[in-house]
Design a protein around this nucleic acid. Sequence first.
DNA 1: GGGGATGCAGAAAGCGGTTTCGAAGCGCTT
DNA 2: AAGCGCTTCGAAACCGCTTTCTGCATCCCC
Lengths: 336, 336
Amino acid sequence: MVKITDVARRAGVSPSTVSYALSGKRPISDATRLRVQAAVRELGYRADGGGRGAAGHRSKVLALAVPMRSGVHVPVVTQFAVSVVTAARAHDHDVLMLTQGEGEEGIGRVADTRLADGVIVMDVQLQDSRLPLLRAGSLPSVLIGVPAEPDGLTCVDLDFRAAGELCVDHLARLGHRVVALVGSPPEVYVRRTAFARRLVEGFTAAADRHRLTSAVHPCGAGRDAARAIAERLVRELPALTGVVVHNEPLIDPLIDAFERLGLSVPGDLSLTAVCPSPVAASARVPVTSVAVPSAELGTRAVHLLVRKLSGLPVPGTTLLPPRLTERASTVPRGTA
Amino acid sequence: MVKITDVARRAGVSPSTVSYALSGKRPISDATRLRVQAAVRELGYRADGGGRGAAGHRSKVLALAVPMRSGVHVPVVTQFAVSVVTAARAHDHDVLMLTQGEGEEGIGRVADTRLADGVIVMDVQLQDSRLPLLRAGSLPSVLIGVPAEPDGLTCVDLDFRAAGELCVDHLARLGHRVVALVGSPPEVYVRRTAFARRLVEGFTAAADRHRLTSAVHPCGAGRDAARAIAERLVRELPALTGVVVHNEPLIDPLIDAFERLGLSVPGDLSLTAVCPSPVAASARVPVTSVAVPSAELGTRAVHLLVRKLSGLPVPGTTLLPPRLTERASTVPRGTA
DNA sequence: GGGGATGCAGAAAGCGGTTTCGAAGCGCTT
DNA sequence: AAGCGCTTCGAAACCGCTTTCTGCATCCCC
């Protein structure tokens, strides 16, 4: 193993000079810095993580707390995780995965052992059990998702409320008067998962504003659940012509189910979704959607966290404005 | 932050005694050990990761290298990752995620910086560029997947060759005489991904042994690809009655595609898959399958790695025997 | 040309653990 | 009572890095 003293000897300077030349924490003359850099390159030196952690109180590791609760859509979560890792690497950090059941234990451990310099928290509930720990501030954090009381925390998320409104606005503009939201699995609402609730609020508010008839239904995964919800919707809302789906794996089965009931998309029913673009674009019928920009959220979270770690000020809550992409699944009402 | 000296003072012993009492690396009298443990509990002490890393040359972190190449099925990969994290926690280790493009950089870095004590390597190719690095042995490793030359390495995998054979045996026993394998996306074979190739070998060998007519086709993702492959199969093999699918996201679309061509499963076509059980069980038609035991593989990999880390001997290659579960998608030939 | 600011770099003191080394206590034998 | 082996624990060195503290040139200005 090549260590800092090796580099120092090779460059003809002291270890401390090497440290400073590399970290830039104090001015080093160009001549010396260049010699050090050359020595680093020639020897292939890389600072030992343990040594740095012990002395510098910085491990260059970020933790990612992803609970993996039931009802979450795995590919979306993974997309987040991958974008976090990629962004972290761009900032010369690595990522430690925490999947702890409810997540508190993991965060506490990371804080106590200083295994990571900060943590990115996913799948945030309105009242999240991890919040007190994060507020305590022993470990810098960024949340992906916004809890009920976000003060004192740093949060990033898609503006799900606006996303819900945007979908309804779009349907209303196309002339649809009766709309339904097919949401996430029930357990997601029971947990009071922030983004799911906010979408419902936006949906309802916009529907009221436009004086539409509306309904909201959570829905579990699977073909059978899709069929059941479709049947129920046509039974309870015979005049239904607009549907918003907030449930990635359900899009295709739902289109299927409606077609079996004689309702084609977009012929009889216009359908919009809130989901990552690839999911919307590759559905049976390409679906007009508000994109959940997982990659961008992950990247932003990392940016914010590293800013925070270097002591720079960060905004409290960042809500990305939703953007709707029209695809084949929505048409003006009455267009056959 | 409570440190080891705090614990030592509280227990009325020296820091070294605390260290030994906790690590068990030298005998400590019961009385003292109990006092130390009590102090640890009362103060909520947890050893600082950096300090331990610097001094003890052990970080209690395992790295997980998961390349995230195109064509891999995300939920399956994630399932692996989650099981690795869970198993690692059971051994008091954390997991660092590496998703580096081709993965060498990450492994090199982890080895050099001693960020992790060992690495678990996923998605192994027959000739994998990461192999030389792993063979060099600067970082203990376990591979999930078996490369062409596994000597000197520790590998775990499902016996995909046997899995391929098992599927064909099953179909042959049911009287099917013309069988096809619908495989993973072409790029997977081009990369010479180990498990994909092995499955093809097993499939072909068994088909020959049973003197079946057989064909092998890679297939990309998506409904269109499924339709294309189905059409091609019925055109080229009109007598086809048995299909093996080794491509998780394609199972449903493929069943669809066959039905549109007037071939029902299992009425006209018996279909078996190699995929995780949940995928098989929740398909449109529950599919007879050989399970890919992702969770067990992840767990085993961790077990092996921690054994290795503690200097215990480990087997070179562990191949789990495939197990076939019969579901609704396979019936004897001629059964309508 | 003397004295204070300024810039650069080395020596040494940590960081929070682990591990080596050695000392003390104790029960036996001789 | 001295000598020996054994167990049990503390002092101190050490891990590899960061950071503080200090020293030494240089530079500038009156």
